[in-house]
Design a protein around this nucleic acid. Structure first.
Lengths: 212, 212
DNA sequence: TGACTTAGATAGTGACACTCGCCAATATTG
DNA sequence: CAATATTGGCGAGTGTCACTATCTAAGTCA
């Protein structure tokens, strides 16, 4: 398969494929001469994965590179693999962030504070900070309810990891973590719309207050 | 309060405040002369809100403008207000998107397909498509479990909307929708880490496979 | 009076994800 | 074999975005 056929098969412009090659997101094809290389199915699959990570999951090119690298050189532990996925979507926290608020919540939810990544804890603290800065004080009961729901989801996540093949487990953990996020957010919005209709009545569609 | 004091109070550079003024995110101060204006507490609050929407929630400047506009000129129905918030985080779907997959899921989850916004449905379809393109086929049972959890969250969302003041309700719906998303995602990651330790054992921290 | 601040406008910056154009070397086609 | 098309590799350009810097005339304050 030549690059133009690869482009046709994936609907990605040749220039973009070349860019991904340069950025080491996509492995090189086999050079058959100085100006020709062969690509195969693995390139097609890889490109689809790249587009899903960059497009659907909204990762940056460099975060995508790290995730792909992690998939190729998997750590021994499934837990560390999860760390790679989480690291890709969580920006590094400053050293002086106060995590005590997060620790308190983790303790309350029984999520063994020690086991949890600093950066992810910082992300929670920052998100809650943004909320309160905007004048929204989330009642503890509401957060608890959210936490219970997310714990349920996380348990489903972890339970659904296949144990037979290590490679399948990796794919599953990383993709399930990163690509499922937009699914979950879309689900929440749809569920909100449904609940909102029942609560407020469906005066109009969410987008249009009525006939124009 | 002059602009430099406003900048000091919010820790936002003067140049950035001027930019927000130009972009109509922030209302003008009261001109006391051709080159002086007074700002007050409402500007401080507004700036904090803007930063939360752009920074925490990750909205674009133009989406932020639409949300703020919606907060100022509230629609009569709470449901329409939710639509404004959802519209801000959901890109407009093409006309020819096939929503039948979404309809089927909405029916199965009892979320009254008709009541749900087209664009949000399209976002779900697209997110699921990205997942399968990447080679991750989510079992229906897993999606059902996710849906149940998100429904629980959405019900908590809608129930927690205050009914006394219309203004408070607006703030609540919009901020609860937009600013809570990063909170929920951080919670999921932390819960995953906790569940992962219990499943795979905590061989190392998620970020570091071991002592270096 | 003179140093400092400001509104308002224009232009510039850096990051990001591509996208384009070029060239020499090949491959394909007639 | 010659004409045409394609390719790898590389440097440079594009458009978008959220700022950021600079300038000027007009003001404020000590």
């Amino acid at each position: 398969m030549r690059i133009s056929q690869l482009a046709a098969a994936t609907e990605i412009p040749v220039a973009t494929i070349k860019y991904y090659l340069r950025e080491n997101l996509l492995h090189d094809g086999v050079l058959t001469s100085a100006t020709q290389a062969r690509y195969d199915d693995s390139h097609v699959r890889r490109l689809k994965l790249i587009r899903a990570l960059i497009g659907t999951a909204g990762l940056s090119v460099s975060a995508t590179r790290e995730v792909l690298l992690g998939l190729e050189n998997p750590p021994e532990s499934g837990h560390d693999l999860l760390g790679i996925a989480h690291h890709a979507v969580t920006r590094t926290a400053a050293d002086d962030v106060d995590l005590s608020a997060a620790q308190k919540l983790l303790d309350r939810w029984g999520w063994g504070a020690a086991a949890c990544d600093r950066d992810t804890q910082a992300a929670l603290v920052e998100a809650l900070h943004g909320l309160s800065e905007a004048g929204f004080e989330a009642p503890a009961a509401l957060l608890d309810r959210y936490a219970a729901a997310m714990q349920d989801i996380a348990e489903a996540d972890v339970e659904s990891v296949p144990t037979d093949s290590a490679e399948a487990a990796m794919q599953h953990v990383v993709l399930g973590t990163l690509l499922m996020e937009p699914v979950l957010l879309a689900m929440r919005r749809l569920a909100q719309q449904s609940a909102s209709v029942q609560r407020f009545g469906g005066a109009g569609s969410p987008r249009r207050p009525g006939p124009e």
